[in-house]
Nucleic acid binder design. Sequence first.
DNA 1: TTGTAAGCGTTATCAG
DNA 2: CTGATAACGCTTACAA
Lengths: 339, 339
Amino acid sequence: MPKMSDVAKLAGVSTATVSRVLRNPDTVTPSTKEKVLEAINQLNYQPNMLARHFRRTETNTILVLVPNISNTVFSEIVGGIEEEAAQNGYRVLLRNTNNQLENEYASIEHLKQRQVDGMIMLSPKLDEETLIEISHQYPIVLATAHLETPTIPFVSIDNVGSSEKATEHLIRLGHRWVAHISGPMYSLISRNRYEGYQNAMKKHGLNPEDKFVREGEFTYESGYEHMLDLLSQKEVPTAVYAASDDMAIGAINAANELGVKVPEDLAVVGFDNIKFASMFNPSLTTIAQPLHGMGQRSMELLLKKLNGEAISQTEHVLPDKLIIRNSCGAKHKEKLLPM
Amino acid sequence: MPKMSDVAKLAGVSTATVSRVLRNPDTVTPSTKEKVLEAINQLNYQPNMLARHFRRTETNTILVLVPNISNTVFSEIVGGIEEEAAQNGYRVLLRNTNNQLENEYASIEHLKQRQVDGMIMLSPKLDEETLIEISHQYPIVLATAHLETPTIPFVSIDNVGSSEKATEHLIRLGHRWVAHISGPMYSLISRNRYEGYQNAMKKHGLNPEDKFVREGEFTYESGYEHMLDLLSQKEVPTAVYAASDDMAIGAINAANELGVKVPEDLAVVGFDNIKFASMFNPSLTTIAQPLHGMGQRSMELLLKKLNGEAISQTEHVLPDKLIIRNSCGAKHKEKLLPM
DNA sequence: TTGTAAGCGTTATCAG
DNA sequence: CTGATAACGCTTACAA
């Protein structure tokens, strides 16, 4: 494995010059640059990044913490991050936390030990205090996350508003008994989506009764179980808004299991617009987040942090969109109720 | 940021001793070890991994190349890898190739530049020659891949046999016109699965006609398109075996689109047992690969390579399983035809 | 514009 | 069992 001194020797220059050719080519005379490049070629020299990183205490690599790599929501965000990173000479490495808080915490080690220069956390589960503490020491950005006190840059959508929109869509289709299967309440996102649901209900003079609200875990299984439960009551909802597509699909399958037809007997709206949402039968009406754009924006913010630029705005709320497909029954109806 | 020399000074020992406490605690007297640990604690010292890695020319990190992080097949394999890696003090970083050959090739840089010690490639697209060349220089292992010449350790299932099993299952349900939507033929896996399909057909005296075979790309869209095409012919298959669940789901939706009921009018079998296979309507009959186990095994093999142990066996074929659900119609039939 | 030389923080070798 | 010291390969003042 040839080293820089080998190249220097062959080119008849000093290692300093070789280093300059590699990192500041403009500060070197074309003719010597030529010689050096030729030597590099001849020896098939590759800089030892371990040495370079050590010397410069930086890696040009960022870490993305993904709760669950099999969730298309996250993989699309990662796509946006990678694009922006590549354009700026950064590498992206992913770490799957498997939704384990401990893994999330453990990944700070990568930063502490300087394996990566910065980190983007997708839907972090760590408490706000801990996050702020980390952010105090290392460049981090959050995505699909929301903070009470936006001291750390984060990228998100308006979860309250989008939830309101989703719920209102069901109400305008004539439903009065709209149920909600929420995400876990320890997550601010879940609380926000719940809040949006409540807002919409109240706005239309409906009472968001406890018997129609269930706290799920964003998973298929929890959607399934809670729907079985909701449908086993004396009074049964005619519509349900689930805070994730996985839960919405679970809910639909539970309804089918009980002979309740979707969307005829039960209208369903999900959240996320995962890849499977359009493939499922019935196709899912859902809220789409601008995932790619969210990834890009997060990386832009992280780049600013890495370059020591000031970040004037920490709260980045991007626009979402209600995508109407078949599960809500809108395509069966002639028209919606007025707003 | 305290360094080792700070700890040494505080503990009244040399840096060599501190280093020993950290890496070979048994070679140090308990009492001095105590002192050192206390100093470490007091200073909240964290070793600088960049320096350590540089010095030792190793990172204790491996890279997993994933074609598509949103494919549950891969995420489960990664789960197995991570488990095995963690037990052996290794970190796992992922890199999404997005199915781009160029990204796959580019990721060799991580190895060249020593950012990681080794690599596991999931379903690599690079040609065998290139792979062997890489393997000659760096520790790599392949998973869900198959080589003509098994010079590189790889973990796989018996794609021919499992395909045969899937096709035969349809034949035993009484189908004679069984179509096959394959993966791309540049991939050996696809060719193997196609071979299995052919074997089963011939074994039962059926002619695997070209008009019933289509080359897809493992994607939902390709399954959808090819099924539309298959069903638009004069003679129409009554069963289809798709080489991936994504394609099988696409095929089912295409059939539905044309008013062809699954499984009543068309029996479908997929491959992979992705998470959605059981959630879909109808639930998918499919071949399940022991994904977690495959991940584990790949990491075991990579560990051997990293430790310089000899690998006696390079070909690792794990057992698969046919999972019978609703899409094949077996649950409607009284009994299967004899083998 | 180029070269010299001093580190970066850790580990490994060799004495003691 | 412990300490002194020389690397590891690269970058970067500083000097020429």
